[in-house]
């Protein structure tokens, strides 16, 4: 007996969604121990070395340590030099510089 086209499609899609749901619900649990171990070793290193930033953007120094960037970062070479590093278009200025009008940053903006 051959299945109708509709049944085949419904079966495939249902199976796909079921697999997706299983992957999304089960994989975080299965990988939890490994994740916890990784996070704790990273936290240990961050605490030990007092690291402040992720090593994601390594082309520009204000993107490598974006939370520590100085005031003139995007125009660091001279006032008319536009930001030419690709990561500069992805990384926004740090909270300390944007915080002036930001509700959450109001308190800290008083510091600068």
């Amino acid at each position: 007996m051959t299945l109708r086209k509709s049944h085949r499609w419904l079966l495939t899609v249902s199976l796909g969604f079921f697999l997706l749901a299983v992957a999304m619900l089960a994989s975080p649990r299965i990988l939890r121990d490994r994740y916890d171990a990784r996070i704790s070793s990273q936290r240990r290193l961050v605490a030990e070395l007092e690291v402040t930033d992720l090593c994601l953007f390594t082309d520009a120094r204000y993107a490598r340590h974006l939370s520590q960037a100085d005031w003139h970062s995007p125009f660091q070479d001279n006032p008319t030099t536009l930001d030419y590093f690709p990561s500069g278009s992805m990384v926004m200025p740090p909270e300390t510089l944007r915080g002036r009008s930001h509700a959450m940053g109001e308190k800290t903006s008083q510091l600068h």
């Binding site: 926004m92 909270e95 300390t96 800290t108 600068h112």
Partner: peptide, 23 residues
Amino acid sequence: SRPIIKGEIRRSYATIFDWRSGY
């Protein structure tokens, strides 16, 4: 001096990788 608080560091990253804002 320019003090940078941990909360600001974390918020910087939270904003960059918030899928409703930033890049």
